[in-house]
Design a protein around this nucleic acid. Structure first.
Lengths: 328, 328
DNA sequence: TTGTATGCGTTATCAA
DNA sequence: TTGATAACGCATACAA
């Protein structure tokens, strides 16, 4: 592999000049051309390890996700990669398989890699554990007090979806929610309750089913709801996987949406479109999340601690299809 | 950040001894304990950049996927991460959004990162372009002559699925296939033809619909098939996204599976389960693919060129559900 | 504008 | 078994 030294020898200039060229310093136009030609000729590539050793920056950030298999995170991950690349950073991705024990291990693993910053969608890790890493960190999707976070407005998201159901006449509205220890789940439940409060309706706690953020939970809790007497006239699923599981259960029971039951899904564009009619869905602004997270982290890695800890809350969209029937 | 020097100072030993300790050399038991304690105390972490500069190995491999949004690749990606980690490697993931122009750019980008090896699921890149990177490379999912590749037995996969349809009495079997320039698509088409040949049946070329590997193609070609007169009695989709698109089309036409039409999907466990009955599907051994790819690449990065170029072909599984009706 | 020289943290050689 | 030291490729302070 060619080094700066080789380029220097080839051009007759010093390595300092070559380095200056590489880092945008002042170099005579004539020399610029010669250096450019030499780099081309020798196929010179920067040695990032050497540069990192010198600058104490690896230009790499670690991204830790609960799961790569959830389209929400997979998509965000792809977007983050683009934005980071635009800032000159590479990305190391890990997932902790929704396992809090693996979560902290992976975080320490990432930190041991000498990366410049971390983006994580946390589950069980604490603020103390994160600050102990002594690495710039921005949380995503889920917030922890005292840390920079980029999240969506979960309360408004569910509030608006449930309101949509209420104005269509629904009163017995089932809600399948994730583990309340995760901020997103807690907030989404809150959104449900607020919508009911807004219309002076009382919440039947039996209609709020708390489970995991996985397909099995969505399936199980949906069946529980359908087994109620009377069953809800509408159900709101509050995550991608819950949506998939709930739809499985509905179809297994031969229920037609919205004729037999109204339904609102979450985070799902693909599967819901498979149905006719497609399912009304809460969509989170993935690209915007990715961009906000990246830019905040880049600022932090650049030493700008302005406004820390910052909580950025982005708006969701309710994509209306015909999965909501009118009652009364 | 504590360095070896700090550990040396703390223990009163030399940096050479600390380095030996870190790399498994001979160190007196008593000193081992003292060094271990010092490392703990000082929270010493290896500086990977310095080590990489010295050893000329970054212990990082690049993984380039057509898309992170396809569950098949997202899952494989998560598996590869595990296997690489077990070998001490980190992973940098990129996707090229199914765009051959971006594909080669991302490959060069990865190579410029001084990674030790590359895993790529190629679309348009040539053998020459890949060897020009002068980096150990193992292909995944799609093979290119002259390069190490880990693929599945696409011919047998489709052959067996189509055979299943044939023995159930189907003769007009639609097949939706990806771009034939991609080896997987070409081979899957071949599997279809071989199954017909095995039963001395002639292939109606109109029933083989060639399109992209995306949802839109699956949807469009499925509609084309359904518009035929007479339409096929069964359809085989040959990728995950094609499967999703085809199911969308079938549901839009209010067709029941298998009453109105028999169907075999590909690579899809989740969505197909949403339907009642679930859809018979060809499943590829993701974890096995990830493991084979990783281990072959690790061998290559270790300088073992034994048997290059190696073509590893793994068996798929036909997961039988009740989406195939019997005819005649 | 260009060049000289130093050091980043580590590994590895060689001598002790 | 341990230690002194050179070298990896680069960025940078400083001198020219």
């Amino acid at each position: 592999m060619a080094t700066i030294k080789d380029v220097a020898r080839y051009t007759g200039l010093s390595i300092a000049t070559i380095s200056k060229y590489l880092n945008g310093g002042n170099v005579l136009e004539d020399n610029r051309r010669r250096i450019g030609a030499a780099i081309e000729q020798l196929d010179y590539k920067v040695n990032h390890a050497a540069r990192a050793l010198k600058t104490n920056k690896t230009m790499t950030v670690g991204v830790l996700l609960p799961s790569l298999y959830t389209p929400f995170f997979a998509l965000i991950c792809a977007d983050i990669e683009q934005f980071l690349k635009a800032h000159g950073y590479s990305m190391i991705v890990c997932s902790y398989h929704d396992d809090p024990a693996e979560e902290i291990l992976k975080l320490r693993f990432l930190q041991g890699l000498n990366i410049d910053g971390i983006i994580v969608a946390p589950t069980g890790v604490t603020a103390d554990e994160l600050t102990a890493l002594k690495t710039p960190i921005v949380l995503m999707d889920r917030s922890i007090p005292g840390l920079d976070s980029v999240v969506t407005d979960n309360i408004a998201a569910v509030h608006d979806a449930v309101e949509e159901l209420i104005v269509h006449g629904h009163r017995r509205i089932g809600m399948i929610v994730g583990p309340l220890a995760v901020t997103t789940a807690f907030e989404r439940k809150l959104g449900y309750e607020r919508a009911f409060a807004d219309y002076n309706l009382t919440v039947d706690e039996n209609l709020i089913r708390v489970g995991g953020y996985d397909i099995a939970s969505g399936y199980r809790e949906m069946l529980e709801l359908l087994n109620m007497d009377p069953p809800p006239t509408a159900v709101m699923a509050s995550s991608h996987d819950i949506t998939v599981g709930a739809i499985m259960a509905a179809y297994e029971r031969k229920l037609k949406i919205p004729e037999d039951i109204s339904f609102v899904g979450y985070d799902e564009e693909q599967i819901t479109k498979v149905f006719d009619p497609p399912v009304t869905t809460v969509l989170q602004p993935m690209e915007e999340i990715a961009q906000s997270v990246t830019e905040l982290l880049v600022r932090r890695m650049g030493g700008d601690d302005n406004g820390h800890p910052q909580l950025i809350r982005l708006k969701t969209t309710l994509v209306r299809h015909q999965s909501i029937g009118t009652i009364g």
